[in-house]
Amino acid sequence: MSTEDTIKISAKNVQVHYDDTHAIKDVNVEIADKAVTAFIGPSGCGKSTFLRCINRMNDTIDICRVTGEILIDGEDIYDKRVDPVQLRAKVGMVFQKPNPFPKSIYDNVAYGPRIHGLANSKSELDDIVENALRRSAIWDEVKDRLQAPGTGLSGGQQQRLCIARAVATEPQVLLMDEPCSSLDPIATVQVEELIDDLRKSYCVVIVTHSMHQAARVSQKTAFFHLGNLVEFGDTDKIFTNPEDPRTESYISGRIG
């Protein structure tokens, strides 16, 4: 599998503390652009916490403290001059459970563009919404009921709607926190195909519990264990020939 060499995100000595708990211990990682990077590891290993550092969602948790630096395109996102709100427009996020707003399908997708003033006119906004829905492979299913509530869709459709919502703000990075964990196998396949497609335009980082999913969709894989980044490398290599014994036992199902 080919990966491009441009580095989009680079983390240096990242530490995260929740009060007294040391959740992320000295993580260094370089994440490539236009590729899918998967974070795997047992529950509570810190993979979601680290993901939430990349768009500073941890700022919304009072007791969380992040040190070290995370660079996106060479710029430290924890620099004082960086506004986390602006950052999150650039780094979109899709959550574990589909969380469409209690608004119409159209308004869900138009939410980001409206906040950030991405459209000059109604017709431009219509185009943005349509494009986002097409890119998220859900346009055909919803094009006739754009004004219906987003909460009325099935779980898999809701998740693709949430992806469309993130895509509509034109982010550069797309973070996905176990996006398929509450979906059935068929919806999972659809979302996975979508992720593979999104890779062409974005730097995608996905946290997943399913090792098969990591193997299917990602080009790079990072294995987290007890807050440490144990091993990081090409997905093929991690799954066929891991270097660290902990990675090997996790992948073969002995821990986790």
């Binding site: 919304t60 999150r88 979109g92 950030h116 949430c162």
Partner: peptide, 21 residues
């Protein structure tokens, strides 16, 4: 649900935008 707020923050909305919308 907190998920609603997270969804909005994740799209780069400010606190008052999230509350209002």
């Amino acid at each position: 649900p907190q998920a609603m707020r997270d969804g909005s923050f994740g799209l780069g909305a400010t606190k008052s935008e999230t509350i209002r919308q």
